[in-house]
Design a binder for these strands. Sequence first.
DNA 1: AGGAAAATTGAATCGTAAC
DNA 2: GGTTACGATTCAATTTTCC
Lengths: 362, 362
Amino acid sequence: MQDLPLNQILCGECIETMRALPDGSMDCIFADPPYNLQLRGELRRPDESVVDGVDDAWDKFADYATYDNFTREWLAEARRLLTKDGTIWVIGSYHNVFRLGAIMQDLGFWILNDIVWRKANPMPNFRGRRFTNAHETLIWAARGPESKYRFNYQAMKALNDDVQMRSDWYLPLCTGNERLRNAHGLKLHPTQKPESLLHRVLIASTVVGDIVLDPFSGSGTTAAMAKRLGRHFVAIERHPDYIEAARARVEAETRLSDEQLAITPAKREIPRVPFGSFVEQGLLPAGTVLFDRQRRVSATVMPDGSLVSGAHRGSIHKMGAQLTGAPSCNGWTFWFFEREGEIVTLDILRTEQSRAPLLNVG
Amino acid sequence: MQDLPLNQILCGECIETMRALPDGSMDCIFADPPYNLQLRGELRRPDESVVDGVDDAWDKFADYATYDNFTREWLAEARRLLTKDGTIWVIGSYHNVFRLGAIMQDLGFWILNDIVWRKANPMPNFRGRRFTNAHETLIWAARGPESKYRFNYQAMKALNDDVQMRSDWYLPLCTGNERLRNAHGLKLHPTQKPESLLHRVLIASTVVGDIVLDPFSGSGTTAAMAKRLGRHFVAIERHPDYIEAARARVEAETRLSDEQLAITPAKREIPRVPFGSFVEQGLLPAGTVLFDRQRRVSATVMPDGSLVSGAHRGSIHKMGAQLTGAPSCNGWTFWFFEREGEIVTLDILRTEQSRAPLLNVG
DNA sequence: AGGAAAATTGAATCGTAAC
DNA sequence: GGTTACGATTCAATTTTCC
C-alpha cells in the first residue's frame, strides 16, 4: 500500500493499468464501464431538435462476445485488486447490466444488492414506443460469499430519515453547474454521474482513509467525492481531455473536516427526533409557513407538529407526498422555511440539533 | 390457433409442455421462473421468529451452469412460441435476473425496457447488513430487433395521470384477501405476484383477444388476470396443489365487459381520413387560406386537397415541412384557419368528424 | 432589477399504414 | 416484400432571454 499511486488520475488503458497495481490493495471499487448502447439512427424530439446521444468510439463493440471478453478481463483484474473484505460497485443500464451481473457471479463476486438509481429528471421517450427509461442499475458485490464487507447501516438509515435505506434511490441527474463543460460550453463527458450518487456509495461502503479505485474515471466524480469525503482514490482514464479536467476538478475540491466526516456510529442508533419536538421547544414556532424548493406548495406548522394545507393535515412526510402526488417523501429535505431573511431547509433543525447535544429530546 | 389448449392450466414440466405447442402461437409471454435463491440456513427476525422464505425444492439448482442450461432451454422454447411481433416479460431478483437477461440477449430477444417493481411494503433487512431489498426487476423484450411489438402507450399514460409511464413501478405486495391460502391459513405459494402487476403488464402489451402464455403459472395470477381482461391464456404448472387452486381461482374470476375493457386508443390506430375528403364535402372550401400558429407562413387550399404557396404545391404535411425547413411535419396540427371569426386548428376537422359518424367519408 | 416566458437538455438500443 | 408518404411524439430542472 506504500507504493500505490494514491490520489492520482492515471493515464492509460483500464485493464493494462490495473495489472500494474498490487493484489488486495483496494478497499472499494466504483466502476462505470461503457454501456454498449447500440444506438441506430438519430433521434429527434417532437420539436425537431436532435438528441445528443452517446456516439463515442469507446462505447462501440463489435458484438456481445467482444463486450463480454472485455468485461470479464477488467472485472477479473478488479477482483484481484480488491481486499478480502472489499466491495465493488458497477453501474449499468439494461443494455449491459445483465452481462455485467452474470460475469460478476461467474468470477466469484457475491452480490449484496442491486440498487436502482431512479432518475428524478430522465429524458422522456419521445416517440411513445416504450416506457420512459427512468433508471440505471448499480450492482453492489463483495469479493466472495465469505467477505466481511463493510456496510454503514446506521449512516444509511440516518440519511434516510431513520428508516432503513431501500434498494431504490431517487436522485437527480448531473446538470447545471455540477456538469463539467468544455470551452464551447458543451458537456465535457456524455455520462458524468451526479456527486450525490457517489456520495451515497462512498458513505455506505467505505470509511475515512479507505482506498477507492475507479477504473473508468471519466470526468472524475469518484475521485472528487473521495477527496471531499476523506477517502483515498486511484483513478484510471485514457482520454487526455477527461484527465485534465478531472485533475483540475479534484484540485478544486476540499476535504471535509474530521468533525463533518464523523458518520453515525454503527453501535447504537441515535434517538429519533420527532419533528414535533422542535415545535415544542420553540425552535420552529407553530404558524411558520413551509414551502418546497420551487415554492409550488406550502403548508403551515401546527402546534402538535403536524402540517396543514387547505383541507389536508398530516406529518411533514405525508404532506410532502400528498401535495406532490408522490408515493412517499422525505419531509426533512422537502420543506423549506424563511429564517432571518434566508431560505433554509427544514433539515437544518436536525443538523443544528446534533451539534448541540444539550437540547436532547430523545 | 385452433388446437391450442386455450384458457387451460396444463399440468406438466414447463419445457416439455411448451414443446407440444406450435410455433408463433403466443402473442405475449409472462414468466416468473425459479429464483435460484441460495439462502444459507434459516433467516430469523430479531424476535427469533423464522422467516418463511423460498425453500421449495423447485427453487434449488446445483450451480449457475445448471440454472443457465435450464434457463436457456425454456427461453428458447418461449421464443419459438412467440409470434413475430410478440413480447415477453420475465421477472427476477438480483439472484437470477442477470443470468436471465444475458441469456435472453444471447438468444436474440431484443430488450425494450427493464422495469423495476418497487415494492410498497418490502420485507425489511433484519440483520442490517444490506440495503432493504425493496424491488424486483422485469425484463420486457421483443422477439427480435425488427419486431413491431405492441405497446399501448396512451393507456399507460392515462394510467399515470397523463404523463408517460416510467420504468419504475410502485406497487404493493400481494397480501390480504388476494393471497391464496391453504387449509391451514398459510400462504399457498411463496411468490404469488400481485394482480396489479399483471394488470399493468397485460394492459401495456396486449389487446383483447390476445393469447398469453405463462410457463410457470404457480398460483395462477396471469391466468386470472388474462380472463378478467378478456385475454386468452395458456398456463403451465407442474405442482398439483397449485393447479387445483389456480383452476378454482380462474373459475371464480369474471371477464370484464367490453365497455370496461376499452382503453385509451392510440391515435395511430384511428383510421386515417385524407385531408382532401373535407374539401370535397365542402367542410373546408377550396380557396381557404391556412397559416401556422405564429402566422409566419400561409398557403391556399386547392380543390384536390393540395396546398399552394408561391411556387410550391403539395400535401398539408409536405408544405408544412417545406415552408419551415423541417424534415417532417404533421400538417393536421401545424396549420390553422379562420372560421366564424375564430382561429382554429386544422385538426378540428378530424375531431368533429369522429364525433359525427353520419358524415362518414370512409 | 425583477419576474415571466422561452429555450435548453439528459447513457435512447424511440414508425408504420397503405400502396 | 419493397417503397412511399403520412403524421405521431416530451418531462423536469436549469438556464437564458425577454419584457
